[in-house]
Design a protein around this nucleic acid. Sequence first.
RNA 1: GGGGAGAUACCGAAGCGGUCAAACGGGGCAGACUGUAAAUCUGUUGGCAAUGCCUUCGGAGGUUCGAAUCCUCCUCUCCCCA
Length: 301
Amino acid sequence: MKILIVITGPTAIGKTTVAIEIARHFHTEIISADSRQIYRELSIGTAVPGPSELAAVKHYFIHTHSVSDTYNASRYETDAIELIEKLFEKYDIVVLTGGSMLYIDAVCNGIDDIPDIDPELRNNLKMEFKNKGIESLRHQLKKMDPDYYMKVDLKNPARIIHALEVCLMTGKTYTSFRKEKTKKRNFLILKTALNCEREELHNKINTRVDDMITKGLELEALRMYPLKHLNSLNTVGYREFFDYFEGKIVKEKAIELIKRNTRRYARKQLTWYRNNPEVTWVHPENKMQLIKFIENTIHKK
RNA sequence: GGGGAGAUACCGAAGCGGUCAAACGGGGCAGACUGUAAAUCUGUUGGCAAUGCCUUCGGAGGUUCGAAUCCUCCUCUCCCCA
């Protein structure tokens, strides 16, 4: 039986270090599940593994794309599954690590097939939202896909726009694409997540952000400033600096906001799996517990 | 030493006799989530055995059927004049 070991958890908890130790222990490789570390222009602000870490274990999906490429959870699913199958020809165990919960979900459970959306169409809908407000979008969705209209969060423009763009693009309802069926994978998935006391996590986040600043996050963000409109740069650590560059806030405020927004991001990540019984929680210092847990599972199978 | 302004929940800040456990903002916490997901959106935020009860609006008294709101004294902060 092939096993995919998922190691996730909030940002700054120490996933990289743990994943490397686990991968070395089981003599295998690491697939990154991080929606921002895939961009080669982003290093400091996304805390990509350093050269020595990348040399210690082979990593995939780090710096593989450009911020101007379109990438999303569905593409990641396709790419990752293809890679996982290839790696399983060589290894019995593969490690998947990262904090992008939707990406991990796409690999574990699959995501429905929906045609690619024309960027212009999306833009038009965005403009419509800006000019006419959400009510106009709701009204259209109610007509085009009443079933989904009943289900969606009607206050969330992103959801409504997405459903609408699918309807307009395909001429079919968004509901018709939402099979919501969990895809069966031909390998076992072991879900683990790292976590610690909230205060400890906040300390880790603060020191990490300070560290990013000394490493030159400001300059990295400045280089990205001309591309600030890209979704890939709607990212904690960059957008706060963009506001600073535009004189909207002072630098100290930007740094403070990066810390706050990172904390919030960590909280959202925790919410994703907190009540999921499939997930085994481990303290990042407790690698032995994690290794034992994995070995026990292997022996049972 | 003289004059003035103010002390409100985690923070900032409204309220100026009942409809106040107290607007609003921030922060915190909780949650949703299927192609933008480090995104987007929502709820909650004195305590509890909770359609009610208890303790709160610097402190101590007082007026009143009733006070965060009025009066007296005290403590502290800020500003102006000396």
